[in-house]
Design a protein around this nucleic acid. Structure first.
Lengths: 134, 134
DNA sequence: GACTATTGTACATAGACATTGTACAAATAA
DNA sequence: TTATTTGTACAATGTCTATGTACAATAGTC
């Protein structure tokens, strides 16, 4: 049977489709599930899998390429490349804090307990930093 | 001297102004910094403080009112009301997990260490659940 | 009670953003 | 060379954001 798509987006979730694709693939890259050398599905293939236009996938790939995760070439496809991450900027730190506070407050407002939230945080930490310490 | 505005938004941060206002006031509500009975600034007053149109603030207030945090009435203003939070839905849980994973991956990609991320998480937890256990 | 000021709301407009349709350019395969 | 595959460019369309302006409801003043 065909492989399942590497990402699964939720149209009608409010978030733009291309942003969902970026976020999910970035998570796979950070966790190491996608290693340098790996070839991603073509923009058309993934577009069909997700039910969106191939230009939408292309925009997502381009965003990741600008972050240094991918190399894109016509006729070849999208390949994961080795990447030296930037050093944490004050700007990045501040944005993270801002967004995290908003997200936690939203979760609490939606009825999630602080315990459930902490549990999810730990679970995702294990998923994203499998073994790594930094 | 005049009170500082209760929120501070960052135009040109990508995030819509009204969403930033919603997120920040929601955080104040969740933490208990804004208690039932408290009167918020008028839409026009806050709009001037933030440098946006009053309809933008009005949209933010309406969003919070629909979540049950505020009561809005013409001529009177916006008042914080007691609110029974909903029970956590599977949908809310899934959305939180999704968004948190994206946010953590983005932070890691921007160079933040897992330690710095965990530290920020704990700090915000203390801020939002001052004493409360649930 | 009449009048004015205050405050949230409704709605049309302008601009930015997201997605798509279509055509093109570069690399590969036959 | 020729056909196919794959990413890219660009215009068109629809939706979302922010604003300008006018209106409706409440409070305050005399």
């Amino acid at each position: 049977m065909p492989d399942p798509p590497i990402v699964r987006i939720d149209l009608g979730s409010g978030a733009p489709a291309y942003a969902q694709i970026v976020a999910q693939i970035r998570a796979l890259l950070v966790s190491g599930a996608l290693e340098p050398g790996t070839r991603l599905p073509t923009v058309r293939q993934l577009a069909v899998d997700l039910g969106v236009h191939h230009n939408t996938v292309a925009l997502a790939y381009r965003t990741l390429a600008e972050e240094g995760w991918l190399e894109l070439r016509r006729g070849r496809g999208a390949v994961v490349v080795a990447r030296e991450g930037p050093r944490a900027s004050a700007r990045a730190q501040a944005e993270f804090s801002q967004h995290l506070e908003g997200l936690l407050a939203k979760a609490a407002a939606d009825g999630l307990s602080s315990k459930a939230i902490a549990r999810e945080f730990r679970a995702l930490g294990r998923k994203l930093w499998k073994g790594k310490t930094s």
